[in-house]
Design a protein around this nucleic acid. Sequence first.
DNA 1: CTAAACGCTCACACCAACGTCAAGGTCAAC
DNA 2: GTTGACCTTGACGTTGGTGTGAGCGTTTAG
Lengths: 124, 124
Amino acid sequence: MRIGELARRAGVSARALRYYEEHGLIRAQRAANGYRDYDEADVGLVAQIRSLMAVGFTLEDARPFVACLRAGHASGNACPESVAVYQRKLAEIDAEIQALVARRTEVATQLKQACPGCAIRRTK
Amino acid sequence: MRIGELARRAGVSARALRYYEEHGLIRAQRAANGYRDYDEADVGLVAQIRSLMAVGFTLEDARPFVACLRAGHASGNACPESVAVYQRKLAEIDAEIQALVARRTEVATQLKQACPGCAIRRTK
DNA sequence: CTAAACGCTCACACCAACGTCAAGGTCAAC
DNA sequence: GTTGACCTTGACGTTGGTGTGAGCGTTTAG
């Protein structure tokens, strides 16, 4: 299939697909006229990338998952490199949460000083 | 005082001070030779900006605080506009924390699937 | 007098993941 | 044969807060 169809099926822009290719995440065959030619498996690759990005992974983070899928595994999760990325990201997320909580505390303290009567309720 | 001294005293780069000025946060008198001329109060303005940025505020967020100080208040917190920014940022931080927690949950779920034996402990 | 240390104004570089043109080639339908 | 939907590469714009350097003038210590 050509880039437009893959883009529609995967829910991304053609520009994004070219960007992924440029960064070595997705390869495409070329038709005689120079058009990119994708197969069914590529739909899965892009889906994997998007689902990872949806939880804050970078393209770099997604690389091992794509490699894992291309190596023939049914899931991009099935390789130790992927597991390692999950663990690293988990630690990163925890660190970010802690930083944010610390900031929240700081801001709440300032708000109390600035406006003692102001109710500080967590937006939940 | 000139820009270098203010930079040292406030713990920022001269470049940053020029940037703040460019964005209307800090004004400087100009000496006859064109050099910026700051007074003691500017040390406090910059300190206010830096302390806000340290908790994740943008320069835009800092604007009302600086205006408040320049209006003669002892603290940049003392104006209703500042309080409003605190409240908005608090809500933003809460939203970010929630998004991160949701992502963490998602990643932890994937990690469990990928590696059932892997311990998932929060980095604390 | 001179050299270091400072100041000035541009203006590009950075990070990520694309969006959005530009300027063109290709291909099916009418 | 021409419209229009598709494809190609290339290259600049976005966002925030600077870092860095060029190319220049000023001040100050020795």
